[in-house]
Simulated assay, not measured.
Amino acid sequence: MSFPLSPAQLTDHVTDRLRAAGCVFAEDEARLLLSAADRPDRLAEMLELRCAGHPLEQVVGFAEFAGLRIALTPGVFVPRRRSEFLVERAVALGAPGTVVLDLCCGSGAIGAALAARLGGVELHAADVDPAAVACARRNLAPYGGAVHLGDLDAPLPADLRARVGLLVANAPYVPTGEIPLLPPEARDHEPPVALDGGADGLAVQRRVAAAAPRWLAPGGHLLIETSERQAPATAALMSRQGLTVRIEQDEERDATVVIGSSPGGPS
């Protein structure tokens, strides 16, 4: 089936619709929608969704992250580019063969990026959202990753205890009272469980830090993405679990990662 307009006319039409809907990068988004749509009716559907405020990545079915194309479905948390900093810091601490655990994994983007960059890892991931787990299983399948459905570390196999070299978590850290201040794309189209960090934004991080000693190998590392404002409190949570802690930041990406290292290896 062919499109009724010429390619140039179609590009202009889609761009104009997106611009009228308030999309700042209308030209770039138009090219992406056009490349992702194989039929006129599919393009029309995608265009309507995007103009209604749905995240572009959910509309086209994928996100670009750390050099990978991560499959996404509607309602699944969209990986942020700032989280690439977490990947980079984890890669610097890992090696081929590392046991990697991605808690609150969402689409599995972080775990997939670590597996792709480190090579040969034993990869596990977990999330409480069935839609996210289904998405993560698709994204981690090429790396032999096991994705577990359940609350935080509850569904993990017992034989992972004290074996994890890299435990990464982009746990929700937006304080409940600040959820209404998020952009509509996130507030209206991403699951609250992936955004809401409780009254102080630290509720899930607190649980991750408390669980980490059960799973970390001697000398293993826990990496949690957080905000610059919350980083000292996140660091204190890790310190209370006996980890040696440092805070690392990337101002260009507005990214903050707190790293806690367990005893028995280099920090």
Rank of each mutant, 00 (worst) to 15 (best):
residue 4 P to M: 00
residue 4 P to A: 00
residue 7 P to Y: 12
residue 7 P to C: 11
residue 10 L to E: 09
residue 11 T to A: 15
residue 19 R to Q: 14
residue 19 R to K: 15
residue 24 V to P: 00
residue 31 R to V: 09
residue 32 L to I: 14
residue 33 L to D: 10
residue 35 S to H: 14
residue 45 E to G: 01
residue 50 R to H: 13
residue 58 Q to T: 08
residue 61 G to M: 10
residue 67 G to P: 13
residue 73 T to R: 15
residue 76 V to L: 06
residue 78 V to F: 04
residue 80 R to Y: 05
residue 84 E to G: 13
residue 85 F to W: 11
residue 92 A to C: 01
residue 97 G to R: 04
residue 98 T to W: 03
residue 106 G to R: 02
residue 107 S to P: 11
residue 109 A to F: 08
residue 121 V to G: 02
residue 121 V to W: 04
residue 122 E to T: 14
residue 127 D to Y: 07
residue 130 P to I: 12
residue 135 C to A: 04
residue 140 L to V: 12
residue 141 A to C: 08
residue 143 Y to K: 02
residue 150 G to Q: 01
residue 151 D to H: 12
residue 152 L to S: 00
residue 155 P to Q: 06
residue 169 A to P: 06
residue 171 A to S: 11
residue 175 P to D: 06
residue 175 P to K: 06
residue 182 L to H: 02
residue 184 P to M: 08
residue 195 L to I: 12
residue 198 G to D: 10
residue 200 D to F: 13
residue 201 G to P: 08
residue 202 L to R: 06
residue 206 R to P: 07
residue 207 R to A: 05
residue 212 A to I: 05
residue 215 W to A: 09
residue 215 W to L: 06
residue 216 L to K: 07
residue 217 A to N: 04
residue 224 I to K: 03
residue 227 S to F: 02
residue 229 R to E: 15
residue 229 R to V: 13
residue 230 Q to S: 13
residue 232 P to D: 10
residue 238 M to S: 03
residue 239 S to D: 12
residue 240 R to S: 13
residue 242 G to F: 02
residue 253 R to I: 03
residue 260 G to H: 03
residue 262 S to G: 14
residue 266 P to V: 11
residue 267 S to A: 15
